[in-house]
Design a protein around this nucleic acid. Structure first.
Lengths: 340, 340
DNA sequence: CACCTTTTGGAAATCGATTGCAAAATAGTT
DNA sequence: AACTATTTTGCAATCGATTTCCAAAAGGTG
C-alpha cells in the first residue's frame, strides 16, 4: 500500500497527534504550519505522521483563533422577484468570474440566495463572523438596507448602479447610458414606437428605462411603453405572451431589460409569425455569451461581465486591506448583431 | 431614531453583553437562543439589549462548539476540462435547485470549483471541518478519488452515473439508456450515419456514447463517429467548427453530449447553410430550460434536473442523519421538439 | 570555566460561543 | 416557620487550533 491513509483509528485533533509524536500541541501546530521555529527533523517527522494518518487541522478552530475566515459571501438579494433563482444566466455568468478571481486568491465562496423578509437580513450575513467580505449581486429593492450597513461595514462591494451620493461601493455599467444606446439603435433602425420590457423596480432597471426615455425624447418620439415582465424565467414566457397582442400594433421596437428577456421575446414573437428584425427590432442587455449563439443573434448592450467581476474583487480586496476603494462605473457598449 | 443600532461602541461578544446586563455569559447564551430555562423577563431584557446594540453571536465559535456547521459544500471537480467554469448552464441549473432545497432547510452553501491537482483534493474538502456534507456535481475523471473517500465519509452525494458495485452514493439518469434513446430518435428520423459530439472521458458521457452505439448496432448501422469537443464554451465553438467539414458528407445525425453542445452545433451548421432538421438531425442532452427557447427548439434527452437535485438533497440529509441512502438512477426521457 | 546567544519545545492564554452540573432563589405546602 | 419542589442562574469545562511567554538546552567565545 503506497500512500493509503491506512490506520483507521483516525486522529481527530492536534493533541492526539502531539501525543503520538511525543511533543506538545504547540510544536505540532508549528510543525504543520512549516514554521522554522521547530527543528527540521521533528518537523518532518510530524508532517509524515500527519500525512500517514490523513490528518488535517480543523479549519473552523483555526479560523476562530486567527480571526480570518478566507471566505467571501456572494449574496443575491431577491427583494421583489422571489421566484427568480440562481439559474439566471446573468448571475451565473458573473458568479463564474467571481469564483475564478476569488479561488485564485485562496478564498472560498459562501453562496446565499436571500429573500429579504427580516429587515436585518444583511446585518445578519455581515456579522455572522463567517465572512471576511461580502459581494452583493444586484441591489434589488434593498438600496436602503445596503446603505445602512455600508455605513459601518467596509468590506462589501455591490454590483449595480451608482446613485449620486451613495455610501456603498458599487461596480456596474452606466445603466442610463445603456438604455440610451439601446434606444438610439432602435431609432436608427427606423423604429418609432418603442417599448421597454422588464420590471423597472431595481435601480439598475429603472435607469435603463430612463435612458430609453431620454433617447425617445431626443428623437422627438412619444415616451416608450412599459411592458412589465417578471425576471423569473418560468413565468417570463407567460408575461411576455400576455403583452404580445399590443406588439405589432402599438410597438415596433423593443428594448428588453436583459438578454434573457429579449431571447424569450424573440421566441414568443417567432411563435406568432412576427419576424425579428424584419417586422420588429429587439435589443437585449448584458451581452451574455449566449447572446451570440441564438438564432437570430442578439443585438445587445454589453456589460463586460468579466471586467466587472474583476473590478468587484479588486475593490473588495482593497477594502479588506483597509483602504476605501471607490465605486466603478463602466461604459456600456452597443453590440450590433441581427435583431436590431 | 426608531430601531437604529445607535450606540457605536459595538458589543463584540457574549461576555460584554453579559457584563452590560449584569448576568453571566451562560445566561446570555441561553437567552439569545430563547431557551425557556431563563426567566422570561431577563430573557427579554437581554434580547432587547442585543437588538439595540445590533449584537449577533459569532457563528464560527458557535459552530466549533456544537460541532455542526449548517454548511454544505457544493463542489465541481474539473478533472479534464480545466477551462470549463461555473457558468456551464447545466451546472447552474442544478445549482439553482440545490440552493433552493438547501436554504429551505436552513443550510448555507459553500461553493468550490476544484481543479484536482493534488490527489487529496477531496479529502481536503471533506475534513476541513467546515462542512456538514458534500454534494459533488459530476464525477469528471475522479471516480477513484471519490470512491476512496466514500469508503469512510458518509455525508456525500454525487451527481453522475452509477457504475456496478460503486461505494459512493450517486444520483443521475441512466446515461446509457439516454444515449440509446437519442440514437433511436435519430434513426427513426431516417438518419444512418450517426456521430457523437462531446468528450467521452467522464463516465456519464462515456455511458451516453455507449448507449448511442447500442442503438446503432441494434439498427444494423456502423458504429457512430466520435467528434471530440471541449466542454468549455469559449473553445467549444472552434472545436465544432473544426468538425464541420466531416459533417454533411460523413454524418447526417448528431447526438450531442449536452444541450449546450447541441446549441453550438446548430448555430455552427446554420452559419454554413446546413439546415436543421432538414439536412441533418441533432439531439441534445439535459433538457435545460433554455432548450425550449432556442430556434429551432431542441430535441433532447431530459434529465429532470429539479427532481435530481431534490433527490440529492434528500439522500444527503438521510446520510447526515446516519442512515445509508442508496444511489438513485432516474429514467431519461426523449423530448421531441424541432431538431430531430 | 564563566558568560552570552541561539534553538527548541512546553505551559497556558486566547478566540467566542454552548452546556452539564450544582448552587441559589423562589414558590408551594403543611 | 420549616421543608420540599421548582425555577433561575452561575461556574467552569469544552470545541480545536494558534501564539505569546518562558525555561531549558545547546552552542559559541574569550
Amino acid at each position: 500500500m503506497p500512500d493509503t491513509p491506512s490506520a483507521r483509528p483516525r486522529i481527530r485533533n492536534i493533541a492526539e497527534l502531539a501525543r503520538l509524536t511525543g511533543v506538545s500541541t504547540g510544536t505540532v501546530s508549528r510543525a504543520l504550519a512549516d514554521k522554522s521555529l521547530v527543528n527540521k527533523d521533528t518537523r518532518e517527522r510530524i508532517q509524515a505522521m500527519a500525512r500517514e494518518h490523513g490528518f488535517r487541522p480543523n479549519q473552523m478552530a483555526r479560523r476562530l483563533r486567527v480571526q480570518e475566515t478566507k471566505v467571501i459571501g456572494v449574496v443575491v438579494p431577491l427583494g421583489h422577484e422571489q421566484r427568480q433563482h440562481l439559474s439566471d444566466p446573468f448571475f451565473t455568468a458573473i458568479l463564474g468570474h467571481l469564483a475564478d478571481a476569488l479561488t485564485e486568491n485562496g478564498y472560498d465562496i459562501m453562496l446565499s440566495r436571500v429573500i429579504p423578509d427580516a429587515d436585518d437580513w444583511l446585518e445578519r450575513i455581515v456579522d455572522s463572523g463567517m465572512l471576511d467580505g461580502v459581494l452583493l449581486i444586484g441591489q434589488s429593492n434593498q438600496f436602503e438596507a445596503i446603505e445602512r450597513v455600508a455605513q459601518w461595514y467596509r468590506p462589501m462591494v455591490v454590483w449595480g448602479s451608482h446613485q449620486p451620493g451613495q455610501v456603498h461601493c458599487s461596480v456596474g455599467v452606466d445603466n442610463r447610458k445603456g438604455g440610451h444606446l439601446a434606444g438610439e439603435c432602435l431609432i436608427r433602425a427606423g423604429r418609432k414606437r418603442l417599448a421597454f420590457m422588464g420590471e423597472a423596480i431595481a435601480p439598475e432597471l429603472k435607469d435603463r428605462f430612463d435612458g430609453l426615455c431620454d433617447a425617445a425624447a431626443a428623437a422627438g418620439l412619444p415616451p416608450p411603453l412599459k411592458l412589465d415582465t417578471h425576471l423569473a424565467s418560468d413565468v417570463m414566457a407567460e408575461d411576455i405572451a400576455a403583452h404580445i397582442h399590443r406588439i405589432g400594433t402599438e410597438v415596433d421596437g423593443i428594448a428588453a431589460a436583459s438578454d434573457l428577456i429579449a431571447m424569450h421575446a424573440v421566441r414568443a414573437l417567432a411563435d406568432r409569425g412576427i419576424r425579428v428584425p424584419q417586422d420588429i427590432s429587439v435589443t437585449g442587455f448584458d451581452d451574455l455569451p449566449l447572446a451570440e449563439q441564438t438564432i437570430p443573434r442578439l443585438t445587445t448592450i454589453s456589460q463586460s461581465i468579466a471586467v466587472g467581476a474583476r473590478a468587484m474583487v479588486k475593490a473588495l480586496f482593497e477594502r479588506i486591506g483597509g483602504s476605501d476603494a471607490a465605486s466603478v462605473e463602466m461604459a456600456p457598449q452597443l453590440i450590433r448583431r441581427d435583431t436590431a
